[in-house]
């Protein structure tokens, strides 16, 4: 089966989960996106997108018990699945192919 197509936000989400390692949960992911990608994330978009990635089989999660600062509500820890990694690789390869040969045009101005 060909790897699933990834939208830009989906790519960012998967990369954030990877960067955060095994303890990635909603709040950290939002923070990571805000810090590194410089975009504020609506929680509505965040959770529905994670659900979509889950539907596509690109992430999975497990539940761990909550702490007092979250009123003892449980926490969902995400990991990227093998299919998720494959999709990311495919996206990166696609982009690379498209970038190839355009460096002269698109390079950052140096002067």
């Amino acid at each position: 089966m060909a790897p699933a197509y990834l939208g830009e936000f989906e790519q960012l989400l998967l990369l954030a989960v990877l960067r955060l390692g095994p303890a990635a949960y909603g709040l950290d992911i939002a923070r990571e996106l805000e810090a590194r990608a410089g975009r504020t994330v609506s929680r509505g978009a965040l959770y529905t997108s994670l659900d979509r990635l889950e539907d596509k089989g690109l992430v999975r999660w497990k539940v761990v018990p909550g702490t007092p600062e979250r009123n003892n509500l449980p926490r969902r820890l995400y990991t990227v699945t093998a299919a998720g990694l494959a999709a990311l690789r495919a996206s990166r390869n696609t982009l690379r192919r498209m970038w190839r040969g355009l460096d002269d045009i698109l390079k950052e101005p140096t002067s």
Binding site: L27, R43, R70, L73
Partner: peptide, 10 residues
């Protein structure tokens, strides 16, 4: 619950 928990923490 996990979503609400994240929001409470935030």
């Amino acid at each position: 619950d996990t979503i609400i928990g994240d929001l409470v923490e935030g």
